[in-house]
Amino acid sequence: MNSSPAVEIANLRVHRGKLDVLRDLTLAVPRGQVVGLLGPSGSGKSTLMRSIVGAQKVAAGTITVFGVPAGAPALRKSIGYVTQAPSVYDDLTVTQNLRYFAQVIGAPRPDIQRVIHEVELEPQARQLAGDLSGGQRNRVSLAVALLGSPELLVLDEPTVGLDPVLRRDLWALFASLAARGVSLLVSSHVMDEARRCDRILLLHQGRLLADETPAGLLTLTGADDPDDAFLALVSGASA
């Protein structure tokens, strides 16, 4: 069993336009855990995720995923990636979307039914993705990432627009995936979701404010809930 982290990032810098989105970021995502990437919008969460999946041009620093440089062809079958906007074809049904992506990554056919079940979209399987609600479309996008047997899931705000019951179910799914050894990096700007993670990375203006367990974060700041903990850290950082 390899105990090196799933993702290792050292001194990562990313510019987008004239903006320094990520400034000298160093962090690690351990294997087999649900790691929450939290921070206000504009803090660089999506850019960090795009860098890890190899979709982002980086200015400096190194990113290795399972010991290989991020974006290497060998990784393309082992990473499931969900972008913030649901990236599925609106003019295809749920099943047709999944069938195409399953062909691309070489996932077996029964996988399509399995992932539809995992995101609870059986009743919508034959509907066009474009006819679904925002939250349902998000889940189609998530289902695509679950196809095959990804070892790392990079999920950009997968629970946005979902009701509390579905959110709970999805976090339970994430936990069971982690128990199977899958590493997950899940971003959210809802601090409340921090409680459900094994570990939390707190991002603020392109810098890492904290890399802690949820309990550790509260102890560190003496706060009662993640929201207050975040506020305490931010005011500490800007002071």
Binding site: P73, R76, I79, Y81, T83, A85, S87, V88, V104
Partner: peptide
């Protein structure tokens, strides 16, 4: 729509 970005992270 982001589908191209997604495909480009896949073995296509």
């Amino acid at each position: 729509s982001g589908t191209l970005e997604r495909l480009m992270t896949m073995p296509l």
